[in-house]
Amino acid sequence: MRRTAAPRRWTGHSALRALVLAASALYFLLPLMAMLEFSTRGTTGRSLESWRAIGSTPAMLAGIRISLTQAVLTTALVLGLLVPTTAWVHLRVPQLRRAMELVCLLPLTIPAIVVVVGIADLYAWVTYLLGDSPLTLTFAYGVLALPYAFRAIDNGLSAMDLRTLAEAARSLGASWTTVLLRVMVPNLRVALVSAASLTMALVLGEFTLASLLNFDNLQVEINVIGKRDAGLSVAVALASMIFAFVVLFVLGFIGRRLPSTTSDDDVPAAVREEITS
C-alpha cells in the first residue's frame, strides 16, 4: 500500500510536535506559576511583601554576588582547561581519548556529597593558602562541571572534521594557537555555549559543597532564609531561577551571534589572514 503524500505526513508530525511542546510547557511552568502565586500571598489578598524583602536582605544580595562570581570563574577555568586539552587529545594523542573521557566522567561516579567528604581536609589547606573566601570553591566546582563541559566539547569536536580542518590550517602555516582560536573555537561555538551554560547553571545552583564546607552562596542563603520565612524563600528561589534563565538566554544569543565560520571558504580565509599578517 502506498504511503500518504509527504506534505500531509509532515503536517501530522508538526501537530504532534506542537502537542508535545505544549504539554511540556504546561508541566514545566506549573511549579513556576505556583511559586509566583505562593510568594504573592498576603494576609488579605495579594501582596508583594515577600518580593520587597529580597532587596532589603543584605545576606541575600551578598549570596547573589558570590554565586555570580563563582559561576564566571568556574566557566573560565573549565573552558580554559578543557578546550585545548580535548582538542589536543583528539588530534595528537587519540589513544588517550578514552582515558580522558574516563577521568572527566569520574566526577559523575563521585557525587558532590562524596566529594565533600574527600575534599574537606584539602580545603583546610586551600583556605590557609588562598584565604577563607567562597571564591576558592571555584576549583571544586570546576571538578563538578567537568563531565558536562567535557561531553559538550567532546561531542562538538567529534561532530566536526577536526583533523582535516587542523591539517588544512597547519599546512597553510597557521600556528597551533591560531588553529585553536580561529578554526576550532568558531566551529565549536554551539558546544562552548552549551558547556558554559551547563557550568554556570550548575554553579549558580550549587548547594552541597557550599553548605557542608560552611561557605555562603546563593543556594545556602535561600535554604537558610527558607527556614525563617517560606514566602520570602519561594520569592527568592523564583527570582534566582528567572535570573539564571535570563543569564542562560542571553548567553545563548552571544554564542550564536559570533561571526560564522562554518561555510566552506571561511576557514581558509581566517588562515590566509594569519599568513599575510
Partner: peptide, 13 residues
C-alpha cells in the same frame, strides 16, 4: 542544573 534547593521550594509552593 539549577535544581537542588530551588526546586524543593518550587514543589513546596
Amino acid at each position: 542544573q539549577f535544581g537542588g534547593v530551588t526546586l524543593a521550594f518550587a514543589f513546596i509552593a
